[in-house]
Computed example of a mutant assay.
Amino acid sequence: MTDPVAVKVAPARPEAAPRRMQPIVPAGTVAGNALVLVIAIMTFLSCLTLGAVTLVRDTASMWQSQISREATIQIKPADGLDMEAALVTVQEIVGAFPGVREARIVDRAATARLLSPWLGEGLDLDELPVPRLVIVTIDESAPPDFAAIRAALAQEVPAAKLDDHRTWIDRLISMARTTVAIGIATLGLILAATVLTVVFATRGAMAGNGQIIEVLHFVGAEASFIASEFRRHFLLIGAKGAAAGGLVAILVFIVFGWWSSRNMATPEADQAAALFGNFAIGLAGYLGVAVIVGLVAVLTAATSHVTVVSYLHDIDVPGRSEM
């Protein structure tokens, strides 16, 4: 009796793993990394511009508020003028007007301190024809009648001249508006340069994959599908670059703010604070940086989308897709 024939059963073939769909635009290319760096630089410059505009606007507002709260009365020395009596008279006249909170005489010691950087220490004001000042604190909600004050001073103390700083305020506002306009124009130019860079990068990516894109388009792939692939790719690039540039800009603002607070009460810090405040852009500035980061990322994706759609429209010759 013979042994039964052994039947060999072929092992079941393992199921083939689903093929991973390759993106139309390869990720991690040298051109893509370079574009991330370019977008990061553009975003950094945009954030710095926005921060500078915010700093100038806030500082100008601070200057305007400080100047508008005070006026200055200057009494020039003249023959036969009793300076001390004239100061007291001016103080009494101005203090009687509604809208004036305080009229304060700048004493001899304070006047000498004001002049010491130019004329040195140990000044004898009796030997120099130095004007004396009266500082007038103004109620901003109900300012006084400056014309009436000038008329009263001209009648009682002709050597006294009132300066309400209106000329300085107007110049300050004009300067701040000009600076803000220049900053906004610079920001627009940087964003325009970013858009043009993305256009060139998108066209370069399409040129490297031109045959694949044309085949996909002619076999029925919709322009929206192809454009979405590019949009997704460049959105990721834009988000990476914009986030990096915005983060570096925030670090720069934090470092400047830390330096300003650490070096407070030094001559350098006092001069910088007098011109630019405390180098703090505030919550509005940081929110502006976040808006710039999001705007650059969206602009990058939108620009690539429009560029791809325009390219496909140019190659879509009527009747060719039906061949």
Rank of each mutant, 00 (worst) to 15 (best):
V130D: 02
R177D: 15
F44W: 12
V7Q: 09
A52Y: 13
Q74D: 00
D124K: 06
T2N: 04
I254L: 07
M42H: 06
S65N: 09
M83H: 03
G220M: 05
L128D: 05
K161D: 03
V106N: 01
P129L: 07
L37K: 00
G210L: 08
A96I: 01
G122L: 03
G183I: 02
S141I: 10
L295H: 01
A302L: 11
D124V: 05
V248M: 13
A147D: 15
M21C: 01
L235G: 15
I190S: 01
V157A: 10
F200L: 13
L251E: 06
F44H: 06
T43H: 03
D163W: 03
I24T: 14
Q66M: 09
G319W: 01
D270C: 00
R132C: 01
S310N: 12
R320Q: 11
A10S: 07
R19N: 09
T111F: 00
A160K: 09
P23N: 12
I169N: 07
A6R: 09
A284E: 15
T111N: 01
G220V: 05
D139L: 11
S261I: 08
E15S: 11
R177K: 15
T137D: 11
A78C: 01
G285C: 06
G288N: 09
L48T: 11
T2H: 04
V94A: 03
T89K: 14
H217M: 04
G288Q: 10
G28R: 06
K76Q: 07
A52K: 08
F146M: 11
F200A: 14
V25E: 12
M264K: 14
Q66K: 13
V293W: 04
V9T: 11
A223K: 14
I41K: 04
P11Y: 03
R20P: 00
S174D: 08
L251H: 03
V252S: 07
L295R: 04
A242Y: 11
I237V: 12
G285S: 05
L312T: 07
I169V: 15
P318V: 10
A284W: 12
V306A: 15
H165I: 03
A207P: 02
F225L: 14
T194R: 06
R232Q: 13
G245I: 08
V198F: 01
V198L: 02
I254K: 02
G95R: 11
V199G: 00
L48S: 07
Q271L: 13
A301P: 05
A239E: 08
D316Y: 08
I173Q: 11
F276D: 04
F146L: 11
L312K: 08
I190P: 01
S224W: 03
F279K: 06
T197N: 04
T167V: 13
D314I: 05
I237E: 03
D3C: 00
H165Y: 14
A6T: 10
A71P: 04
A12T: 13
S61R: 12
A297F: 06
W168V: 13
K8I: 08
K8G: 00
I149Y: 05
T29I: 08
T186P: 00
M206I: 14
L50C: 15
V100Y: 02
A16P: 06
P158A: 11
L114E: 09
I315K: 10
I190N: 02
A34Y: 01
E70K: 15
L55W: 02
I315V: 12
F97Q: 13
A142I: 11
L162Y: 07
L283A: 13
A297Q: 07
A12S: 12
Q64C: 00
G246M: 04
P143F: 03
A223T: 14
